[in-house]
Design a protein around this nucleic acid. Structure first.
Lengths: 161, 161
DNA sequence: GTGATTATGTTGCCTAGGAAACATAATCAC
DNA sequence: GTGATTATGTTTCCTAGGCAACATAATCAC
């Protein structure tokens, strides 16, 4: 197995593990909310004039699925929609007070996770971070180029390895 | 946004993009197979005496879901099961000839992806790889410790960030 | 302007996969 | 040995989310 493979596999395991652990902690504080709902609240809390399309793009999800999540959050009273006079098709969302409360809980939990994992990253130098970030960006650009080569809109899901 | 966050976000986007792209290519050659099925074939092809439990652990999936996949692959004639005399409960799997064929196709495609992305990694030095791998492993260990602290079996899914 | 194309959001249908319950073999405690 | 616990696999039920089809507003070409 070459080094790239090794990193990729380690990373996959790492991310799985992290999501298992964080999810476990998460559920205590945020019972009754799916992770996707919390994610959605987070995004809306941080981006003014969020709409289904923007959310979907950010989550790498279909608009269809995203629409269902926002509908649920509306029913739960976590978010509310509004429109603008210059466009009567776009539907924007903002957090309600209850939504803000959830946002805050999630935010704090996030901080808690950061604190928990701090020690691991303290040993990493700035140059090393730059190097990693640079690599990630280069790879991302490379994939963008490859996607362009296809000349197709990739709306497909399926997490193939 | 701190550096850790930045890397994490970039990585998430990167992985999503990669799976979109690879899946798109994948589907041409391997129509009629879900990514999870191909994954399963891959694992069985590379690990003798695979069983549902091992597969599930490797995929970070429930045994329930894994069982369904192996059943499908059996029906499709891609894998076959066998047992050993020392244990009449465990059910092992091996690839059939058809399964081997799919394995080969996937393997070649994988090579093709590696080739495609080679240029990105050529610029990375061995020391840099070691550094990254080291970080991933440290983080993974750290999470293992945190999971141990909970003293709970985390069988939970849900990919919370 | 008008017609075609694109953007945005939603609905219905379907599938992958989790949770819980279960059956039964294996193993452990004694 | 026997009984309790654990390991392994499966089934049933349910939900999240993709896909395709759709409706309708916005925009573009002319």
């Amino acid at each position: 197995m070459d080094k790239v493979e090794q990193v990729a596999n380690g990373l996959r395991e790492l991310l799985n593990k992290k999501s298992l652990l964080n999810n476990f902690k998460m559920k205590d504080s945020l019972k009754g909310f799916k992770s996707s709902e919390v994610h959605c609240i987070e995004y809306i809390g941080e981006n003014v004039d969020s709409n289904v399309t923007k959310l979907a793009e950010s989550f790498y999800m279909t608009r269809s699925a995203t629409s269902k999540i926002t509908q649920k959050l509306m029913k739960k009273g976590m978010i509310e929609s509004y429109q603008k006079s210059d466009n009567e098709k776009k539907i924007y969302f903002r957090l309600t007070e209850e939504g803000e409360a959830i946002y805050k809980i999630h935010y704090d939990l996030h901080k808690e996770f950061q604190e928990r994992d701090k020690t691991v990253f303290e040993q990493v130098t700035d140059e090393q971070f730059e190097m990693i970030l640079d690599l990630v960006e280069k790879y991302s650009k490379h994939l963008d180029d490859e996607i362009k080569k296809l000349g197709v809109a990739l709306t497909n899901r399926n997490d193939f390895e």
